[in-house]
């Protein structure tokens, strides 16, 4: 995008910083072409990019069941859900580009393992019940995380989150309905659901990130209005929501320490295995290699489509070159 240039004095950094601080303090939104501190820009690019990567990689565990879904109805639902996750990734890459990042470049960083995605997607989907449990717990945890992000201080990120949150509710409900259906089925089906809950419960709690006293960057993100609640706060909210849902479903959450605390009005839960979490996020989970290999194959094996479409466009657009793209205006 180009802007008409006016003759003007060099901007005064301190004044710009004051203006930025005032915008944040007033709970107004920062928009793409506003001045912002480099730290704010970097934090956002990293966060939005890794969020986008999570959506894109997140298609894989459930995508594995697309061809094996037991009915046309279930297949259509799962396809729509996986397609939504692709859409979420696109909204978020779009937001990242308003900060000056480049979509293809971010994808390369994902494939080269320089940027990460959520640890949860490095677990395999071993049974069809996992599709239901992912919808219920993983999308449920994502909703807890994402709803406050709708008020994030960065405008394009907040707007992307609003679109995403509207769609997540379908994801969670289809999962829970799938599980209710299985629980009404045979003993074998009920056992499949319980086994799936046993495998996904703890990784779902890890989705909220390390405990607050081990989360050094949170304070800055809170001050910038990028983050609105602490990791532990959100995790507690998720546990409190999930316990009665598990009860209704008739499954047992795999935590012997789960007890109702009358005084605080919260469910108290056992210790999380942070070593497992760190292993998985740093590349040693059960499915890390497979996830990245498939994303790489999608990029490389489909490169000819990109090239063919570019050649076609060049030929039919009066020779107008598909020039380098400028930063997004959004």
């Amino acid at each position: 995008m180009s802007a008409p240039t006016l003759e003007r004095p060099a901007p005064d950094e301190a004044a710009l910083q004051r203006q930025f601080d005032a915008t944040i303090a007033a709970d107004h939104r920062i928009e793409p072409r506003d001045w912002m501190p480099e730290g704010y820009r970097r934090t956002l690019i990293r966060q939005v990019a890794q969020h986008a990567h999570s959506e894109i990689i997140g298609m894989q565990p459930e995508g594995d069941w697309l061809l094996a879904a037991p009915s046309l109805r279930r297949k259509a639902i799962l396809l729509a859900k996986v397609q939504d996750e692709a859409g979420h990734g696109m909204y978020l890459y779009s937001a990242a580009e308003t900060l000056g990042a480049d979509r293809a470049d971010l994808t390369d960083k994902l494939i080269e393992r320089k940027q990460k995605y959520s640890s949860i997607f490095n677990y395999p989907t071993l049974s069809y019940a996992d599709v239901g449990v992912i919808g219920w717990l993983v999308d449920g945890a994502a909703i807890c995380n994402q709803v406050p992000l709708c008020r994030s201080s960065y405008g394009p990120y907040a707007r992307a989150m609003i679109r995403i949150c509207k769609e997540e509710s379908f994801h969670q409900r289809q999962g829970y309905e799938l599980l209710m259906t299985m629980m009404r089925g045979t003993d074998e089906q009920r056992a499949m659901v319980q086994d799936s809950v046993d495998r996904w419960w703890w990784p779902s709690l890890m989705m909220f990130g390390p405990p607050d006293d081990d989360s050094p960057n949170s304070a800055q993100s809170m001050a910038w209005g990028i983050k609105r609640h602490s990791n532990d706060e959100l995790r507690q909210r998720f546990v409190d929501m999930s316990v009665p849902q598990a009860e209704f479903l008739g499954v047992t959450l795999p935590d012997p320490d789960l007890t109702w605390d009358e005084q605080s009005g919260h469910w108290r839960f056992g210790a999380i295995d942070w070593d497992e979490f760190k292993r998985v996020i740093s590349g040693h989970g059960p499915a890390n290699d497979e996830r990245i290999a498939r994303r790489r194959a999608a990029r490389d094996d489909n490169a000819w489509v990109t090239e063919a479409a570019t050649a076609y466009a060049r030929k039919h657009d009066g020779g107008r070159p598909a020039e380098e793209h400028a930063g997004s205006a959004a």
């Binding site: 969020h51 997607f121 995403i164 890890m206 390390p210 996020i281």
Partner: peptide, 18 residues
């Protein structure tokens, strides 16, 4: 690490290129 990225915890340290 942070969980800000919606779908769960991701690293935020200086080792992540931006």
């Amino acid at each position: 690490l942070t969980s800000e990225g919606g779908h769960g915890a991701v690293p935020t340290g200086a080792e992540i290129p931006v």
